[in-house]
């Protein structure tokens, strides 16, 4: 069970990583602060406070979860390769593919655990102040955030697998973060306007970005409709139906995770065995 050993120790290591602790700590603090501020007016606004909490959490998640997943994943293997500690691990009687899988699982374990703790604290506050009727919607947000974390971590591992140095991996990860979080929507909007793309093409292009898929799935799942997602979301809901749209968006997150993971593993094996 060497994969379990490696995964367990990597989960422990990620929870000691200063960068991870800093960013995840900032994320968790903001989540709780946002919940407290929004719930401060719960007596006046009632359950509508949940909408404000959810909107804040979605936006925080869109910024922080990709940042944590991409950067931690990107430096995880590249850093060990650069320091030389990977050599000792690869000299042990463990399959190389197991090393990659176990490291991914270990970091994913630590990361989703941290996401769950951050959201869990906000959920507890929510339940205490606003009642438990919106907890299922909140849990949906936790599940989606975990899926986004897994997808971004797999992308980080893909970057890390073939990067010769920690700094190059980190630089690439930050560029990918910018592309997915900031540039992507603007680029698609610009392209759609210039090329006069049909709605379905805008939908496909937009949804292929896991951050956009997360946002759409979160809004649709929490509000129970696509009204707040704009014309593209409305079009998608019209074509696929409510459940179909949610299923497709979750599938996109899962496919992104699986695809990046498999490509990363291939790249890792090529890098260590030639």
């Amino acid at each position: 069970m060497s994969w379990l050993t490696i995964a367990r120790w990597d989960a422990r290591a990620v929870l000691r990583d200063r960068w991870f602790i800093s960013v995840a700590g900032a994320f968790g603090s903001l989540v709780i602060a946002a919940a407290l501020v929004a719930l401060g007016s719960v007596d006046v606004l009632g359950v509508s406070a949940f909408g404000r909490v959810a909107a804040t959490l979605i936006h925080l998640g869109m910024l922080f979860i990709p940042l944590i997943g991409l950067t931690v994943g990107a430096v995880w293997i590249a850093g060990e390769r650069e320091s030389g500690s990977l050599v000792l691990l690869l000299s042990q009687p463990v399959e190389r593919r197991t090393v990659f899988s176990a490291k991914y699982l270990g970091v994913a374990w630590g990361m989703t655990g941290a996401v769950a703790v951050g959201f869990g604290a906000a959920g507890l506050l929510l339940a205490l102040r606003a009642g438990t009727d919106r907890i299922p919607a909140f849990l949906w947000l936790v599940v989606l955030s975990s899926l986004l974390a897994l997808a971004m971590l797999a992308t980080g591992f893909l970057i890390s697998a073939g990067s010769p140095s920690r700094s190059r991996a980190l630089g690439t990860a930050l560029l990918v973060w910018l592309a997915l979080v900031i540039v992507s929507d603007l680029g698609i909007l610009g392209t759609a306007m210039i090329l006069r793309l049909p709605a379905w093409a805008v939908l496909v292009l937009g949804s292929l970005n896991p951050v956009s898929a997360f946002r759409l799935a979160a809004i649709v799942g929490i509000t129970g409709s696509a009204d707040l997602t704009g014309p593209v979301g409305l079009y998608a809901a019209d074509r696929l139906g409510f459940a179909g749209l949610l299923g497709a968006l979750v599938l996109i997150l899962a496919a992104w995770t699986g695809g990046a993971y498999l490509l990363g593993r291939k790249r890792f094996l090529e890098a260590v065995e030639g």
Binding site: W9, G79, S83, S85
Partner: peptide, 8 residues
């Protein structure tokens, strides 16, 4: 050049 998992 011996190197080990850095956070252990």
């Amino acid at each position: 050049t011996p190197a080990f998992p850095p956070l252990l």
